[in-house]
Amino acid sequence: MIGRLEPGSIAAKRGMSDLAIRNLFIIPTIIFLIVFNIFPLIYSLGYSFTDFRASMNAPANFIGLQNYRELLADEYIWINFATTAKYVLVSVGGQVVVGFGAALLLNREIPAKGLVTTLLLLPMMMSMAVVGLFWKLLYSPSWGIINYALGLEDFEWLSNPEVALYAVALTDIWMWSPFVMLLCLAGLSAIPKHLYEAAAIDRAGRWYTFTRITLPLVTPLLLIAIIFRTMEAFKTFDLAFIMTSMESTELIAIRLYKMAFQEWQTGKSCALAYIVLIMVLAITNIYVKYLNKAKER
């Protein structure tokens, strides 16, 4: 019956048949997904079991799990993972604190609320590369505005192995706190006002009200924000790549890039990409489990 319009059906009212919708929207999407996502995904899984090098005109030899074995035994890879974990913790943690705090401040009657909210969202709309370049200027030791404002003379931010990672994380916090804020604000404004009134009548203090009403009701949206930001932070490449280049800021994605496009170890880098993918999936799954629990409550 595909192609026939039932008179009075929704599709008929919109003037488009199920068939037209399928041909116009669904099939192109599926083709796009297969060509650009699913095919490379499977193909790179194949490469990860070979010694293939894209720079050499040699055929790929199947070497089994050797790539994986080597990678997991490589202590430098684990240092990269540790650096990434530190970066994710600081960056996402900072975004949650700043974003949630800003959302709490904005969730009340203030003058020009719409304008303030829009202005706060601006960092999020910029390009990663541009943000990286600008912050590099801001961090500049001799004439950067940050040292000027803090009264620090010649303090090295981005070439100092002790602080470079945190400096990059700070930029990430600046850029993505608005995202957390936006989701938290949506969660906060959905809490009915009468619950707060009931709590006031029940003689609940501010902190008690916050922990017993605000927090549990915002948690699902906050968790969604954390999931997105963790996934993004875990695979951060551009910001760290543009702003610094040293061992202490070598995130796993940068290591992956070097392995694939500087050392041309295509097969091995595919294996590393799969390890990263599995880790991101595992972390996300833990969050989703928490999210479902939070929603049930």
Binding site: H194, L195, E197, A198, I201, D202, A204, Y208, R212, L217
Partner: peptide, 25 residues
Amino acid sequence: LVFQYYSLYPHYTVRQNLEFPLRSK
């Protein structure tokens, strides 16, 4: 105050709702 629209705390059980005012500081 008993509200027209009940205003129960949605994420808690009946017992937790009843305890709410008692656990205030």
